[in-house]
């Protein structure tokens, strides 16, 4: 992430979103699956360097919106999945390595599966260290705790690289303490961050822009400081 800055000179925290160079934008987007509306008439722009939280009741369309945003720039986005996207039988190393499967030839990938090369070892060790997983790098991912597994998922996104970090409910299966750690990590390492979250207080605490989704529609899109209890009540009401 660090090696790929925004195409914008000085991203400052606290600015109005509209003032930044938009890296992702949707214009009156409607998505339907099998005749069911999944997103209805959504327009939004996300600027470089923003930290955006998506909140709303389950079924509101958060995941769909995230995926749609991802598709806008798949080459620049890294996606942190919920834990199920990890392969529990593979080592931490390999799960992180999977972030760049499509950057390498299949032959190289096969070789790495059996015997990883020196370069990959070094690169991934650096990432693992930054996530506090240095000692676990050859451990089966399935044997790790929930928090550690979530770090592996982050590691995969980090290794993939790209200026936009997306996360779908990254802390849904963690307790509050672990959840805070992980969110802090995501917000720190990502340049532009978009994450769906089911915990409103964490969103308000760590993100600077909050998008509320309800019934497949945009309910509100406000800086974190301006979200009122009334907004939230209406969103979840």
């Amino acid at each position: 992430m660090k090696d790929r800055p925004c195409h914008h000179n000085h991203p400052h925290h606290g600015h109005r979103p509209s003032l930044r160079t938009p890296v992702l934008s949707l214009d009156q987007e409607t998505i339907a699956y099998d005749g069911c509306i999944a997103l209805n008439d959504i327009s939004l722009q996300i600027g470089c360097g923003e930290k955006v939280a998506l909140i709303g009741p389950s079924g509101a369309g958060k995941t769909t919106l995230l995926r749609r945003l991802y598709q806008l720039r798949p080459g620049e986005c890294a996606f942190i999945h919920q834990q199920y996207a990890l392969v529990p039988q593979l080592s931490v190393f390999h799960n992180i390595y999977m972030g760049r499967l499509d950057h390498h030839s299949t032959l190289h990938n096969l070789r790495t599966l059996i015997r990883p090369g020196l370069r990959e070892r070094e690169e991934i060790t650096v990432i693992a260290e930054s996530l506090g997983l240095a000692e676990k790098i050859w451990t089966r991912t399935g044997a790790l705790s929930g928090g550690q597994q979530q770090r592996v998922a982050i590691g995969r996104a980090l290794y993939r690289g790209g200026s936009i970090l997306m996360a779908d409910e990254p802390v849904s299966s963690l307790d509050m303490v672990q959840g805070r750690e992980i969110i802090q990590l995501i917000v720190d390492i990502g340049q532009t961050v978009i994450s769906s979250l089911h915990l409103v207080e964490l969103s308000l605490e760590y993100f600077d822009r909050i998008i509320g989704l309800a019934r497949q529609q945009l309910a509100f899109d406000l800086p974190a400081g301006q979200v009122s209890q009334a907004d939230l009540d209406e969103l979840y009401g």
């Binding site: 995926r67 991802y70 798949p74 996606f79 999945h81 199920y84 996207a85 392969v87 529990p88 039988q89 593979l90 390999h94 999977m98 499967l101 499509d102 299949t106 990938n109 096969l110 599966l113």
Partner: peptide
Amino acid sequence: IPLPFDASEGRLNRYCYELLPRLYG
């Protein structure tokens, strides 16, 4: 097996990294 939507497109990659380790047991 639910694959993440951004899983590698390469079939051999998918086979070796996503599917085989999961279903081998």
